[in-house]
Design a protein around this nucleic acid. Sequence first.
DNA 1: GAGTGGTCTAGACCACCTC
DNA 2: AGGTGGTCTAGACCACTCG
Lengths: 253, 253
Amino acid sequence: MGTTQLEAVQEPKYWHLKTVLIDALDSEFEVGEILPNERDLAARFGVARATLRQALEQLELEGRLQRRRGVGTTVAPPRMGVAVGPSANVWPGAGRDAWHTIGCVEAVAPAPIAAVLGTAADEAVHTIHRERVMQGQPVATELLYVPAASVPGLSPMLTPASHAPAVLRELHTLELDGEDRAVELGSARAEDAKHLDRLPGAPVLVVTSRYFAGGRVAAASVATYRADTCRLTFGDSGTVEVTHHQAEGRRAS
Amino acid sequence: MGTTQLEAVQEPKYWHLKTVLIDALDSEFEVGEILPNERDLAARFGVARATLRQALEQLELEGRLQRRRGVGTTVAPPRMGVAVGPSANVWPGAGRDAWHTIGCVEAVAPAPIAAVLGTAADEAVHTIHRERVMQGQPVATELLYVPAASVPGLSPMLTPASHAPAVLRELHTLELDGEDRAVELGSARAEDAKHLDRLPGAPVLVVTSRYFAGGRVAAASVATYRADTCRLTFGDSGTVEVTHHQAEGRRAS
DNA sequence: GAGTGGTCTAGACCACCTC
DNA sequence: AGGTGGTCTAGACCACTCG
């Protein structure tokens, strides 16, 4: 008896805060503009800083904010459409493909990669480290694995500088039968985070690709994209030109 | 003078905790097994509960743990490979396509959807709500938008039960020229969260699809996949059979 | 050195599930 | 009723950037 509880659900403070902030972002702020600092914002909304941060965290996850230690919190631009997996199947590194090589080593593949490649765990693979930059900022790092068995014609003596181009050139002589991709959510390892200019643990989209030739997996890659700034596009058409972000009011009924 | 600072970087406690927990998960726990509760775990590691939770949060994001309020934290099975965008272009709802319809209404499209469809903001669209279940648990919800102009032959009088099938049947009479997809990270809206058996704000992979026919966007959909349990697969081959999770030791040099 | 976001603590209460 | 994870507080200190 007693307390009439017409307010069935009380949504969490940080959730409500998020909607308030989104409204403010859409109406009162420009892209790139810097927000008041967290302590001030928390005081203004009458909540603890940790609560405010929970809201900011989600907004950053959704690509609406960008936070930088020592600098501040800024309004993020709409996510970039990043083409992944063009309709025309092509080998990595062929043509102009938006990646540039950072380094290359020959080593044994880690167990999960060996499983993808279908090679023995102790087999040698060339590992090419590449990076992808769009609009002046790094959006992805990639490790491309090419089993030594896939490029038998490779000349044995290679300088570090000529290693990656030689492997790619050799790879391109094969006929590509098809490719395969998988996308999943992950968190940036320390090394990836540094390349992507984020903190370790930042949310990333991990794209695993397999390249088939001669009935085998001739190469495989694991690419790590910044989840906050990227929208991965697939398929026939070019970059999709939607306004931005996840549809908000896609309610209909 | 001065504190010799050989330990250049001190990694955060929660980060170190994460690696310790991963090791424990791999060696001492079975899939589905329930972990000690957060208060006990925090005490065992000598950290505050909030710090422990920061580690658990990332592990859940990476699909290694599953937490349920009132129940506990369990070890998650490897992510499911969920096929998205088969090589053969087909209309949604054609053949057996793993989705089942929940409801259907005719209404005006929200602004971002109208932009994708290239229709006027006040144009009527049929909105079909569908759900995808795999291995007994819901993995995605979808809103499929079909402009009324795309299905001119639709009979005007429809019962709610026959509405969705009629729209799909009419849609399938068109010739599909191609399709388009984009994947980005989002957080679950309250309604989606309920369907996906998650809390609001849970991380999701948002897949936006466009279906082309007659030189126009004849239909579009926004599908929301659970990011913790799903690995989205694209391309020619079927489900990729990797061991699981993001490659851990893909370090080579 | 001043200001920012990032980490961490030690509590408290709430919503939910199960017994 | 008792136990679980989810939310929230009010502090503290640290790492980083910049003028």
